[in-house]
């Protein structure tokens, strides 16, 4: 499959595809960071995670519409506001869902899967009723358009760079929150031993609710990033849910670093192969390799060694 390209052409192809993969990587990372918290830490299989992302994307769309009609002068900064809105709306809905549904199911993980799948169907139909079945897109502000030439044959898009930088920031923030803050300590305590955590005075219910909300909120931010690379439709979230789960499982469910590493591997593999074969075959091959590796190494790439 490498026939017919010179070496330098191949280099450029790999660099450009790698960069295209990096945007996919950003969405994967943001999606799976949220899921790694919800699934890896709390053990809840949130099949509606994709819909929380799409909720964030629709919020971004609404914010951009509002800015366009009322504050056209400030359109350059709409994205930052949109991210906040997406985080808050997805996060609050997540907390509501946790309170009304998930908290009864902590002992039955497989049932959370069915219940959240039902939730995802309801959310999809709600999106369709509210925003219409047609896909919507946002207009990028002036400064995010265009691309930077790196060499003669390689160009990178500014919005891609921006999304990536943002992703890194959020990943670092999540890391600090989970591993360096008092709240993160409480979350990890509840995950490791719920009864003892409760006994030393941690309000496990509140921690659960906030953790679930945080995971959903990050999915909302992923939705904001998603608006830059794809158009938003009611069922767009479902396309990502399988990949996201594989990313989290592949990385070792409880490890944030593993999640990021596996998001990188999967997105890069897929995007590089996409150049040489059809998109569907690239996807099949990537997923098959991941499933194959998981069969050999079911605990994922990075394992948290905990005695249970």
């Amino acid at each position: 499959m490498f026939m017919g390209y010179t070496l330098s052409e191949l280099g450029s192809i790999f660099a450009m595809q790698a960069f295209a993969g990096l945007i996919l990587f950003s969405v994967f990372v943001l999606m799976s960071l949220g899921l790694a918290i919800i699934f890896g830490q709390m053990g809840v299989i949130n099949m509606a995670h994709g819909e929380f992302m799409i909720l964030g994307a629709y919020m971004t769309y609404l914010t951009s519409q509002l800015f366009q009609s009322y504050l056209p002068g400030l359109y350059g900064i709409y994205f930052f506001v949109a991210m906040g809105v997406a985080f808050l709306v997805s996060g609050s809905l997540g907390m509501l869902v946790e309170w009304s549904m998930i908290r009864f199911l902590y002992k039955r993980p497989l049932d959370t899967l069915l219940a959240t799948w039902g939730l995802s169907l309801i959310m999809q139909q709600a999106f369709r009723s509210i925003f219409g079945a047609r896909e919507v897109g946002v207009e990028l502000p002036e400064w995010m358009m265009g691309s930077l030439p790196v060499t003669d044959t390689i160009e990178v898009q500014i919005n891609g760079l921006f999304v990536m930088g943002l992703t890194m920031l959020i990943a670092v923030a999540v890391y600090l929150l989970m591993f360096r803050s008092r709240w993160g300590l409480q979350v990890r305590a509840v995950v490791q031993n719920r009864t003892m955590a409760g006994a030393v005075g941690i309000s496990t219910e509140r921690v659960d609710r906030n953790t679930f909300g945080l995971g959903c909120g990050i999915a909302g931010i992923a939705g904001s990033a998603f608006t830059m690379i794809g158009s938003t439709g009611p069922t767009a979230g479902q396309l990502y849910i399988v990949d996201t789960f594989l990313v989290v499982v592949f990385g070792g469910a409880a490890s944030l670093a593993g999640t990021i590493a596996s998001a990188f591997t999967i997105s890069q593999a897929q995007s590089t192969m996409e150049f040489f074969m059809s998109g569907s075959m690239a996807k099949v091959l990537t997923l098959l390799v991941v499933v194959g590796i998981l069969m050999l190494r079911p605990e994922g790439l990075f394992v948290l060694k905990v005695r249970r």
């Binding site: 993980p109 789960f245 997923l287 991941v290 079911p298």
Partner: peptide
């Protein structure tokens, strides 16, 4: 044989369903 079960089994079988569809369509 590797004692993968429960949630992980569910997710892997779901991925297989996705793979199969993409493969047949492709």
């Amino acid at each position: 044989k590797r004692r993968v079960g429960g949630v992980y089994f569910a997710i892997i079988t779901q991925a297989l369903a996705a793979i199969m569809t993409i493969l047949i369509v492709g």
